[in-house]
Design a protein around this nucleic acid. Structure first.
Lengths: 178, 178
DNA sequence: AGTCATTTTTAACCTAAGTTAATGCACTGA
DNA sequence: TCAGTGCATTAACTTAGGTTAAAAATGACT
């Protein structure tokens, strides 16, 4: 294998293209998909489905982001969530192991991976904070401030399930704060 | 600087010991403390304090763990949370920059850092899932299953604020599920 | 033992959000 | 055009949890 010096370069050479129509799943909860995906274009959602059928949305993934199930990547079991395209999307898939091996070969790549993981950890920390400390209404106000474009691309149902409330509750929240 | 080959080694040589009495703070929200701390013994809590005085507990940190504010470490601002000892504790502090520089020198150390960050991301993901998808009662049941020892070391007040409910609510939950 | 502070429980009342179901709306496809 | 489907709103009712305050229980210190 060539010594790739960046995540971008690695994806160019070893990434396998994947074209997704709307509503197509990349993987389901329980699948053993140990790849990371780079989103070239489109929009996806990562969501949990509980035993009683309730859907909770973990995150929306826009172009430029990287997504994959850590659980499956680290071989600790299947994917912990579902991944589906909300809009037609183009991805590049790369086995997680390939990334790890390449990182072991190249200092600069390892540094890049560390930066990616630090950014990921900070994003998760922010979300954790909002879920722990803010009310549903406060979370909605924040989302409207930070990602107004996203609100236009995603149904209110999905926004609600991302905020951790039912669509009915979100409709009420909007009415209250108008 | 010697080329340290492991996080443990780096802490041995460059870590600065810190002994904390109960109730002593390591840092406060807003402080610029860009260090990571390794907990040798004791127990700490990381918590947010909102403008209106409400406390939310981000996490409990037991011996063997590493803690620090990513926000401050990456120079993006002050610490986003408070860190205080719940029991007498011994820490080793290390500037985050020292860790990053050392990781740039050593493959094995960089690999170790990546593993740490992956584990951290998985833990945050788990917590995010529980806050998003489970009820307070379900979160309490899980905590009792996974960390029964912790429940004995921490007041019920703090458990409640970790679960994201008030102490009164947790008392009711316990009563219900008995 | 007795006092003090802290923690936990209980009660009464209030508010946010879940549930179910009906209605209206917009988009799609035959 | 019309039927069908999914989305958003509204209503009525239920439930979990917040708030405030007071009472028990626990623990620490002298």
């Amino acid at each position: 294998m060539t010594k790739e010096q960046s995540v971008a370069g690695l994806l160019q050479t070893h990434g396998q293209p994947k074209v997704l129509a709307k509503q197509t799943h990349v993987f389901y909860q329980g699948d053993h998909d140990a790849r990371v995906y780079f989103v070239q274009s489109g929009l996806l959602k990562a969501y949990y489905l509980s035993a009683d059928g309730k859907e909770s949305i973990k995150s929306f993934i826009e172009a430029g982001s990287i997504i994959g199930s850590l659980n499956a990547a680290l071989g600790q079991g299947g994917c912990s969530f579902n991944l589906v395209a909300l809009e037609p999307s183009q991805l590049l898939g790369l086995p997680f192991a390939t990334l790890v091996e390449a990182a072991a070969q190249s200092h600069t790549l390892a540094g890049e991976v560390i930066q990616h993981l630090l950014a990921l950890a900070m994003k998760k920390e922010q979300r954790e904070y909002e879920l722990l400390s803010l009310s549903a209404e406060q979370r909605f106000v924040r989302l409207r401030q930070t990602s107004p474009e996203l609100l236009k691309r995603v149904t209110q149902n999905d926004i609600a399930r991302y905020l951790g409330v039912t669509p009915v509750a979100l409709s009420r929240i909007k009415k209250r704060g108008s």
